[in-house]
Structure formats: structure tokens, C-alpha cells
């Protein structure tokens, strides 16, 4: 399986995402924001960072990039797309996901290992998790507070489209402790925390067993690979 990672001006986590994809067992394909070409990939990751310095709104200018025409088209046809942090912000700005992200309620950048509960293990990126699995992956952002209208929130909750919720306290004021959501089809997922930073023992969050040994993030990537094998 080939999974594309799009690099935008100001992307930071594109290399980590590519490494996570390789560790999960797929080929990572570097894609460029200015191209109109997805190079035949089977899935896409929009990585974290600060595209265009968060000018206008976080993810807003990147969501208007040339390659986003192809990304939006592919997402609507069912290609699995994962937006992490800034990538999540781009997916909301591109109207592929509902809601929006605003500045953290305490006005501070937050960087820490964060507990999450997987609320939906049927999306293309979460099938490898047990129902209601509790995981720990890093959270690092300044504008991660998920907002949506009452009506949208009702729809997201009613249709089981909350992918992950913060546990152990709401870090940023997100409505209903929402850390990630999916679209109706379940192929597009946006996550504020960073699974790509918890994929290799020695470089992940601390666990009860050993320091920095947490690899809970790897399952997002192995899920989409397993899903592609089933589809064949």
C-alpha cells in the first residue's frame, strides 16, 4: 500500500508521518502542496505543523492549495484521509469535516502526552482498536479547541462520528471533550493529537512498563493498511 504525505509551506510533521507509515508496513510517498498530482496513492495524510504561519486561520490558506483539489476529490470518492493537528484544521477549512478549531481556552500552547478514548473503531483509521480503547499519544497545539454548532454537534454524536475523546481532563475547551471526528463515510478522520509521534519504542510517551515506550499511535496507520488488504 502507498500512503501519500502532503508537505505544505510550514509543515513540521511530514517526515514523522512518513516514518510512521513505513513502520506500519506501507510505502510513504512525499506529495507537494503546489502539485495537482497524488501519484496514485491509496491513502493520504495531511500532517501537522503551522502551514502559512497560521495566517488568516490555522489551515485556511493550505486548504486552498493546488493539491487540495485532488485531495477533496479523492476524499469524496472514499480514499482514506487522515488530518493530524494542522491537517485536521485544513480538513475543516476544506469542508471535508464538520466543525472548526479555535485557540485553546487558556490561551496557551499545550504540549504533553494525552489520554484518549477511541469512540469509533469503525473509521478507516481506527479499525485496529478495541471498542472504547484508551490510548496515550502526544498533544501539541495552540488552536485545538473543537467547536461546532449545537445542531452539528448533535449530528456528530448521533451518528457516532466522534472518533476520539480526551480523557483525564479536557485540555483545551473542546466541546464534548472532542479530540477527533470523522465524516459520514468514515474515510476522512481529523485528530488534534499526534499518532505519528507514538509509533516507535524509545520515542513515544511513557508507559507503566518503560519510559518513552508508548506506540499507541501506530494502530491508526496499521488500521488503514489492514483495511486496504481487506478491500482487495
Amino acid at each position: 500500500m502507498r500512503i501519500g504525505v502532503v508537505t505544505f509551506p510550514g509543515s513540521l510533521d511530514d517526515r514523522d508521518a512518513a516514518r510512521a507509515i513505513r513502520l506500519a508496513g506501507a510505502d510513504a510517498v512525499a506529495l507537494w502542496h503546489g502539485d495537482h498530482d497524488l501519484h496514485g496513492v491509496d491513502a493520504l495524510v495531511l500532517p501537522g505543523g503551522f502551514s502559512y504561519g497560521d495566517y488568516l486561520r490555522a489551515g485556511a490558506i493550505a486548504s486552498l492549495s493546488p493539491i487540495m483539489t485532488e485531495v477533496i476529490d479523492a476524499a469524496k470518492k472514499g480514499m482514506p484521509v487522515l488530518g493530524i493537528c494542522n491537517g485536521f484544521q485544513m480538513l475543516t477549512e476544506a469542508h471535508l469535516l464538520d466543525g472548526g478549531l479555535i485557540r485553546n481556552e487558556q490561551g496557551r500552547f499545550i504540549c504533553r502526552d494525552q489520554g484518549l478514548r477511541i469512540e469509533n473503531n469503525a473509521s478507516d483509521w481506527t479499525t485496529g482498536f478495541a471498542a472504547k480503547a484508551e490510548i496515550v499519544i502526544p498533544l501539541k497545539n495552540g488552536e485545538g479547541s473543537f467547536m461546532a454548532s449545537d445542531e452539528t454537534l448533535k449530528t456528530l454524536e448521533g451518528e457516532g462520528r466522534i472518533v476520539a475523546r480526551y480523557i483525564g481532563g479536557n485540555p483545551n475547551g473542546s466541546l464534548n471533550d472532542i479530540a477527533g471526528v470523522t465524516n459520514a463515510r468514515g474515510n476522512v478522520v481529523g485528530l488534534m493529537p499526534h499518532p505519528e509521534h507514538a509509533v516507535e519504542a524509545g520515542f513515544g510517551p511513557d508507559t507503566d512498563d518503560a519510559m518513552a515506550s508508548g506506540v499507541d499511535g501506530l494502530t491508526f496507520f496499521t488500521s488503514v493498511i489492514a483495511g486496504a488488504l481487506v478491500a482487495r
Binding site: L56, R57, A60, T92, E93, G100, L101, M147, A148, S149
Partner: peptide, 9 residues
């Protein structure tokens, strides 16, 4: 469509 995001602004 561009200068504002109606979800938050």
C-alpha cells in the same frame, strides 16, 4: 468563503 469561517466567525 475565504476571509471568514462561518463555524467560528
Amino acid at each position: 468563503t475565504v476571509l471568514s469561517n462561518s463555524v467560528i466567525e
